[in-house]
Structure formats: structure tokens, C-alpha cells
Amino acid sequence: MSLDHAAVRHIARLARLAVADDQLESLRSDLERVLHLFDDLAAANVDNLAPLAHPHDQPLSLREDVVVDTDRSAQLLALAAASQGGYYLVPKVIE
């Protein structure tokens, strides 16, 4: 697997990580090395195997439909760097 700069920029964009131009090449070669590690997956014989997403075949546990959480907005908003009038604030978004 080889990666070019455009691919690195695309992934970084999907992950919302700013990458400076002068970091791009070292990041690219780093990632490429890690991706080479994954070539090993192709060598495993996984014919007829179902993917395993959860370690045990346990069913999902559900909760009853009961309201147990009450207003803690003051506490939550105090953790935010920017809030006003009960809202979290972000730079203006245009739809």
C-alpha cells in the first residue's frame, strides 16, 4: 500500500486534524509503514469466517423507558470553553 500526499490530506480532513505542510511527508511515510504492517492480513485464511465485532456472543442489554436524568445544564456548560444563554457556542455555521 502506498500513500500520496493527497491521500494523507484527505484522511486528515476526514479526521479533522490540521497538518502543516512541513509535516506532511514525515506523516505520509509514517502511515505508509504502519499500513505495510496490515499486508499481513491478506495472508490469513479467513474463508467462510464471519467478522467478529464483539468478543462474546452476548445479546445487547436494554434499559426501560424511564426518565432518570434531570437538568444539569449549568454543570455541563461550565465545562465548555464558550457558551451563552444556555447554548454551546461555535463559530458561525452557514447551512
Binding site: 496490515f38 492480513l41 491478506a42 490469513a44 479467513v46 469466517l49 464471519a50 467478522p51 467478529l52
Partner: peptide
Amino acid sequence: DAYYLRAQKVRRL
């Protein structure tokens, strides 16, 4: 498919 899904199958293995 080549990475995530295959890794999950190797996980089963």
C-alpha cells in the same frame, strides 16, 4: 473491506 472487515475476520480466526 480490505482492512477493517478483514481484520474482524482475522479476529474471529
